[in-house]
Each structure stands twice: as C-alpha cells, then as structure tokens.
Design a protein around this nucleic acid. Sequence first.
DNA 1: ATTATCTTTGTAATTGTTTCAAATAAATAA
DNA 2: TTATTTATTTGAAACAATTACAAAGATAAT
Lengths: 135, 135
Amino acid sequence: MLESHQYLRQFSIKPSVQRSAVMNFLLKNRIHPTIDEIYLALSPSMPTLSKTTVYNTLDLFVEKGAVRALAIDEKNARYDVDISAHAHFKCRSCGSIHDIFDLNANMYQLPENKSFKIDSIEISYFGICEHCIGN
Amino acid sequence: MLESHQYLRQFSIKPSVQRSAVMNFLLKNRIHPTIDEIYLALSPSMPTLSKTTVYNTLDLFVEKGAVRALAIDEKNARYDVDISAHAHFKCRSCGSIHDIFDLNANMYQLPENKSFKIDSIEISYFGICEHCIGN
DNA sequence: ATTATCTTTGTAATTGTTTCAAATAAATAA
DNA sequence: TTATTTATTTGAAACAATTACAAAGATAAT
C-alpha cells in the first residue's frame, strides 16, 4: 500500500486512500480489469467506496499517464498499469485479456503521416485462449 | 442496390430489403459507421426500419464474415465492409476513423503462440486528424 | 391455400458511463 | 487552533448503447 503511494507520486497524483487502493489493486492484479472488477474487488474492504470514484480515479490515472486505457474490449473499458509498449490478446470465448508480447521497434514505430498526427498505437490479437480450448 | 444483393450472396447472406439497404450503405459510405449512423441514414427512405434490425443485420454480417467489427471506438461499435488487412486511425478530437495503411505481411502475420490460438489482429493508431489540427 | 420458417419490428430491460450537487476530507490562512 | 478555501468522494439521477423478447409481417415449402 505504501508502494502505491510512492508510485502515484511518480506520476504527480496526490495519493488519497481511494487512489492508493485502486493503484494497489492494479499493481497486484495484472488482469486489465474493468471498472466493475476493480469496484467489486475493493468494495468489501472499503464499504463506502463509490463506483463514481473508481471512474474518476481511472480517468485521472489515464490523464496523468500512470495507466493506459485499452479499446480492445467493446463492452467495457479496460485498464493496464503496464505502460510499456506491448500487444494484447483477447479471448473471444471468455473475454479475458492477456499481455502477449513486447512490441519491437519496428512495430511500435509511429509512422509519419501527412493527414494525421499520430501519438499512439494499440495492437490487439483475438482468438481462443488455452483455458477455453480445453473446454 | 442490385450490387449489394449480389454482394450479400457471396457471403451466403439471404438478401432482404433491409439487409441490401444496409450493405448498400456500407459499400457506398466508407466511414466505419456506427449503428446509429446507419439507422439515421436509412431511416428517411425506410420509415419502418427498426434499430433492432440494424443491430441484427450487422451481427449477421459479422458472423458471415462480410463485415468487420472494430473495437477502436470505446463508445460505439464501428463496422467496416473492407475486410482486407489494414490499420485504422482514430482522431481523439472529432472521433472520426480512417483507413491508414495496408498491413504488410510482416505485421499481419499472426504469431504462433502456445497459450493462445490467434485468428485475427487489429492495429489502431490514435492522434489528431488534419481537419482538427486546423481548428 | 395452409402451414412452417425466417425476418422485422417496437417495447422494455439491462448495462456501462456521465452528470451533478451535496457531503466529507484535506490544505491553507488567520 | 479555528476558520476558510479547495480538493475529493459519494450517491442519485440522467443518459446512451446494446440486448432480450414476443408479436407482427414476409417468404418459402407443402
């Protein structure tokens, strides 16, 4: 929990109890969680926590560059504390999202383009995960 | 409209009036439209058209492989009749989505992976478009 | 012509997200 | 410290996208 405190400061985010709890969850659970997953996980130990706070908190984290919002899931926003350049895999069957590999300089290189000022890239793979193949 | 008819058959989709109209719109308007955009565009000339039908129709098109659903926009599902391997760009400011370039064999190659059975890839770039820079 | 099947429609329910104003907590000034 | 300002959290309500579902309509098969 103290770690999250420190971690937040690195991104100039004032650490409140709620923010530290959310960041702590993200750091310890690398599952690209939805807002709901975060809320449900923290709610038992923080009964007064509001879902709006979780929304606010993640908006702030994204704005400060501490967390990356993923578009890979059409249903819910997904959040990733790992801000390094890497691709994701989403299972069509169970919906789980996994880190799949680091992007090499080739892929990660943002192309020059006269019509668009490009500032980021998201690479997503889709298919069926090991666990779901076994069923 | 006859073209759409033919086009649908290529994907073994039985062409109804509604399906042909939707496909025709997609073929003539390469804007990666949302359900709502399609509905609003067709509604004037097809007053009885229901939004549920547009949802059903696009689900069917995707299932039959005639259309690709894009995850690039967190708010709404986006649909693309161009099923060739190409990347997209989304403007953070106006939300418009554009084809940006064809994927070369390098990028499009689906990697072998022991944990996941990968069947598709989506590459998305984000930034600001020409038009929005000018404002 | 009758029956069965497929497709469309409209309404209602559900889900994810946003808005907003009041309540609480933290920071600053007197 | 106490008072005052500022930031954060909260819960309720509004909103938007999507899904569920049953009835109506169209198409195909007998």
